[in-house]
Design a binder for these strands. Sequence first.
DNA 1: CTGCAGGGGTAAA
DNA 2: TTTACCCCTGCA
Length: 309
Amino acid sequence: MQEQKMILQNVDSFELKDIFECGQCFRWKQQENGSYIGVFGKNIVNIKKEKENIFIEGLCEKQIKQTIEEYFDLKRDYRKIKERLSKIDKNMEISVKYGQGIRILNQDLWETIISFIISANNNIPRIKGIIERLCQKYGEKILWKNEIYYTFPTPEQLKDVTIQEYRNLGLGFRDKRIYETTQMVLKGQVDLNQMQNNPNTNEIREQLLNLSGVGPKVADCILLFSTLKRLQVFPIDVWVRRVMNDLYIKQPQEEKISKKQIEKIAQEKFGDLAGLAQQYLFYWRREKWESESYMESQGVEKANFAFHK
DNA sequence: CTGCAGGGGTAAA
DNA sequence: TTTACCCCTGCA
């Protein structure tokens, strides 16, 4: 572990707000000066952007350059991805423009699994609070610049935690699921290393679905947001359902649209970029849905939108 | 102030 | 296919 610094210049597609607020991660906190501090693995990182300069400093296990490059997916050409998506239709052009600084992080598989089990039927502030308490209680303490940070607890660190202790943390009915999934991983009923190296996406999904608390939506989030990095999967939650209905299906009773129908459209329209498309659409819809004037300013036909409420 | 719906779904019936 | 679920917030 050592204190390191670096500066990135003129990186395409890199906006802190877009990256950290688009719903893929839960442990980055905005500071009063606008920078973000986060913990991933055993790394504590402070990141700040001023104009085209990105200032990064922190405690890293390996070289900071390599660490950042991997975590922020810097080797992928998002410009090209956005170009392809923007050409699909006007909706994609607008949503990509809105979330132009998004990058899909390469997050630790174990942390992503637990985090998204916690996310089920939950809201973001509460999810963040639960995860923070989990880390404080069972993670490893790391001191940096007179502040204490906590790593995300490993399966081993959660080995003897009881369901009741999870319940006391405020996990609610997810207590049992976290307990069971941890035990399954510890017993080797699921091999995360092997999963990481498995090229067969459907096989991985089946394995993930065996875990307690992992259903189709959570499984797809894990596939997309972790180091598994399957950019073609299309997690369907209430917001995605909403935006897909508004833009492409336009049924009055949105809740009755079948998942298969949405999946079919996503596959046809976005193909191998479905996961990226999902993220731009999700972020845009969640942040901007209330602003009809925004749509007009972007030249979107009113008739194309069935606003909710 | 009380009551209730609903939230980045899942598991069990 | 439907329903309960822990806890918190927003709103009637």
